[in-house]
């Protein structure tokens, strides 16, 4: 099995990558870690004429922080996040999620930005960053980078707001306070495979973050604002009671059993959160 022929260019800067993409008439793909793209190339599902490698591009692995935000360059790998090579502004959520992505050999090469741009609905970062209310920063042709809210970045399977010549440069993750609690649950039959359902809950009253999310839907992840409000007011137990109903309402297109699977993932996340708060 081998990919169809393509040209490979190594961009030295993200700006150069943007130019290469813009000049390729929609027939180019960005190559970061390639851990989702290369399987598609091998299966010849994707047949781009040009691959623009950005692994070594300057500006792809910047880190910037203050007391509210931690900005992670898109080129950091899942394994680096898992190992705590960089600070985790979410008090363990990012590290925990990174550890659960695929397998170590894949985590060693796959990047956070690449996973987001690929936008597989079942990918872990898509749901996690949406639940955190992160901001995705993309470099396009203009001088000013574009900024996208993570919760509305993914439009559906493999579709994002990203323009054809835009490259994700960084992900701005809000810092969680010492009061914060979070829980992440995914349902999959085998370790490391794409999830059938993801439930995420993040509660940080001090930082004003209260979010509950059902992920790994067939399209974009679904925030559950009512369940989240209930969580903040009355606790995880009360939130559990209304989660299933809200899921049925916000994901009406899914089959009943799939809706229930999502409800289970969300309830598990809420229950885990309750257990953590109790300590």
């Amino acid at each position: 099995m081998k990919s169809s022929a393509f040209e490979l260019k190594h961009a030295r800067t993200l700006g150069e990558a943007t130019e290469l993409l813009a000049g390729a008439d929609g027939n180019a793909k960005v190559l970061a870690g390639g851990q989702s793209l290369v399987p598609m190339l091998n299966l010849r599902l994707a047949r781009p004429k040009l691959l623009v490698d950005i692994k070594r591009a300057s500006g792809f692995r910047e880190l910037a922080a203050d007391d509210k935000v931690f900005s992670i360059g898109a080129g950091w790998t899942h394994a680096e996040i898992e190992d705590g090579v960089l600070e985790d502004p979410t008090r363990g959520l990012l590290r925990s999620v990174a550890h659960g992505i695929a397998y170590r050999a894949v985590r060693n090469r796959g990047t956070m930005g690449g996973s987001l741009a690929h936008a597989d609905p079942a990918a872990d970062w898509v749901s996690t960053l949406a639940a955190l209310g992160a901001v995705i920063v993309a470099q396009g042709g203009e001088e000013q980078p574009k900024r996208y809210a993570a919760e509305s970045f993914v439009d559906g399977a493999f579709s994002t707001k990203l323009g054809e010549s835009e490259v994700i440069a960084a992900i701005e993750v809000p810092r969680l306070s010492a009061d914060a609690s979070w829980a992440y649950q995914k349902i999959c039959r085998k370790t490391g495979e794409f999830a059938n359902a993801i439930g995420v809950a993040v509660l940080d009253q001090k930082a004003g973050i209260k979010r509950v999310l059902a992920g790994a839907t067939s399209g974009s992840p679904a925030l559950l604002p009512e369940t989240a409000a209930r969580l903040a007011e009355a606790g995880p137990g009360a939130a559990c009671e209304i989660a299933a109903e809200e899921i049925r309402r916000v994901l009406p297109n899914l089959d009943i059993d799939t809706q229930e699977l999502h409800a289970v993932a969300v309830r598990r996340a809420l229950a885990t959160l309750g257990g953590r708060q109790g300590r």
Binding site: A64, A65, L86, G133, E151, E172, G219, L223, V250, L251
Partner: peptide, 29 residues
Amino acid sequence: NVAAAVAPVTVSRFEGSRSRPASLLATNG
């Protein structure tokens, strides 16, 4: 022996925008 042989990372001061971009909070299409 996690994170052996890892170069130290440098973190610069965050100078990006403070405002969150508009979110289209349509959760299901």
